[in-house]
Amino acid sequence: MGYLGQIFVMAMTAIFIQNFVLSRFLGLCPYLGVSKKLDSAFGMGMAVIFVMTLASAFTFLIRRYLLIPYNLEYLQTISFILTIAALVQFVEMVIQKNAPALYKSLGVYLPLITTNCAVLGVAILNTKAFHADGITPYNFLDSTLNGLLSGVGFTVVLLAMAGIRERLEFSELPKSMKGMPIALILAGIMALAFYGWMGFKI
């Protein structure tokens, strides 16, 4: 299997088979909180893809060249979350200065991303990830790519959810079901649909 084939496998896994939201339960707060409108969901999705890609790259370097050589693996959680927080802050400043238009649409979501567990999640998962052969651990490029693809997977389901919820506004629901309950049940049905990708027979 060539490298393109491996990338294809990684993409299918990250987006459909082990979707961050629906199968791994990561990034649920924005998934439920920012999915009421399609355009804000799109903004959030883009911001998450951006930060997840960068975070995967940086945390990989930190682990490989700082934590492992000096036997500091127990500082993994604390160093990763600080990296992510600093990264988010930095991205926010850069975008604000150089792309004010983009900042207007993404700005409000950026601070929320520090506590999006999908970002820390992908960084930690990358440290334990292996290729399909089960022997080669992820290298720098793989980790970065996995961050990007997992972010895409997050955005795909976020957009799908937002699309459904926009329509849901006009449907007649029992009063007690409105808002969060119906959103959760929707998510459950979506998760069920995504299980089809794995070939599960329930």
């Binding site: 029992p174 007690s176 969060m180 309950p181 119906i182 959103a183 959760l184 049940i185 459950g188 299980y195």
Partner: peptide, 16 residues
């Protein structure tokens, strides 16, 4: 996973 979402959804409806 689907059961998790659906269970919590109905629980919240019940609380409402």
């Amino acid at each position: 996973a689907p059961g998790a979402f659906i269970t919590l959804g109905f629980l919240m409806a019940l609380i409402n």
